[in-house]
């Protein structure tokens, strides 16, 4: 097997893992702390991409687009939290699932109304185009940027959760919500803040990937399910778990797509192998989740309870 190809795929896997982490960080926090299943997290992923695209095209600058997207996503997230999500904390998971499914329908149609049915491409500034070569390995600069931003966010989140007072409250909330509020902490404010942070991270993930895949309606609806798999594998409420699980799944998916077809070609036709490989690597991800749920229902890194 070609070593350069393996390295290239490793970088792709890392990039997918980072993206999954950005999406699942918010999901695992809202799930762990507020006990909320939020399918609409996918919508913030999509909204981040679309707002960034619109901003980039309007101001002719990717960086202004990114800034605008982050601000508007945060404002939208706050509004959604106050109007809808706040009423769902006391409900059971099924209600949450359905209500946020409704939010997805609303967001998808809203984007359709504003930007039309086609996707929006985001042109990259010259600084981020081009490639860097390390010997035989040639890597697009932008892929490295995605990875760097993702790692930066992971480090920042680690610092926020483990080293600051706000983080201490977040961890306390994940362990015992009632105790936290009886100690005089305003849980509502904490919930809003966590929700907005999570939504902004999801939006960031969406706008980072959009220059490669372009922003499209429903772009988050598939990857959100994978993000749920990530947080279940990692342990609900655990940032560390989300990070590790996101990377595992990123690598499984990428390597499966890249190399399973070579493996399958030994016992089926080349065309069938090419169709089967991505599907089987997607199935592998769910098999992993099922195994982990049976073996360790609380996930790899469950937050300490009580």
């Amino acid at each position: 097997m070609d070593f350069t190809l393996v390295l290239t795929q490793a970088i792709n896997g890392l990039q997918l893992g980072i993206l999954l982490f950005l999406l699942s960080a918010g999901l695992t926090l809202t799930f762990g702390i507020m006990d909320l299943i939020n399918l609409a997290h996918a919508s913030f992923y999509m909204l981040g991409a679309f707002i960034c695209a619109a901003g980039t095209l309007y101001f002719d600058s990717f960086f202004i687009g990114v800034a605008i997207a982050i601000v508007i996503t945060a404002v939208l997230a706050l509004a959604v939290e106050k109007l809808v999500i706040a009423h769902l904390y006391v409900r059971d998971h099924l209600d949450q699932l359905l209500a946020t499914f409704g939010l997805i329908l609303i967001a998808d149609t809203g984007v359709h109304l504003i930007w039309g049915p086609a996707g929006l491409a985001i042109p990259l500034p010259p600084v981020l185009q081009g490639q860097i070569s390390f010997g035989e390995l040639v890597v697009p600069v932008y892929r490295l940027v995605i990875i760097a931003v993702g790692l930066l966010m992971a480090a920042g989140l680690y610092w926020l959760v483990n080293k600051t007072r706000a983080g201490m409250l977040i961890r306390a909330g994940a362990s015992n919500r009632q105790m936290l509020s009886s100690l005089g902490i305003n849980v509502q404010v904490l919930f809003s803040a966590v929700f907005v942070i999570g939504a902004v991270l999801a939006g960031l993930g969406g706008l980072l990937i959009a220059p490669i895949t372009e922003a499209s309606i429903g772009m988050g609806n598939d990857i959100i399910i994978t993000a749920f798999v990530v947080i279940i594998i990692g342990g609900i409420g655990s940032i560390k778990g989300a990070f590790v699980a996101a990377l595992i799944i990123g690598f499984i998916d990428t390597f499966g797509r890249a190399f399973l077809d070579t493996l399958f070609a030994f016992f089926m036709s080349v065309e069938s192998a090419e169709t089967a490989a991505p599907a089987v690597s997607a199935i592998l991800v769910y098999v992993l989740m099922a195994l982990i749920l049976v073996w360790r229902p609380q996930g790899l890194f469950p937050p300490k309870l009580r």
Partner: peptide, 20 residues
């Protein structure tokens, strides 16, 4: 919630199986 997610995971497997 784990039940919700694992049943969804199994149906996703069928989805990708049919796609393949």
């Amino acid at each position: 919630v784990h039940f919700i997610m694992i049943t969804m995971a199994f149906s996703q497997m069928i989805f990708y199986l049919l796609v393949s």
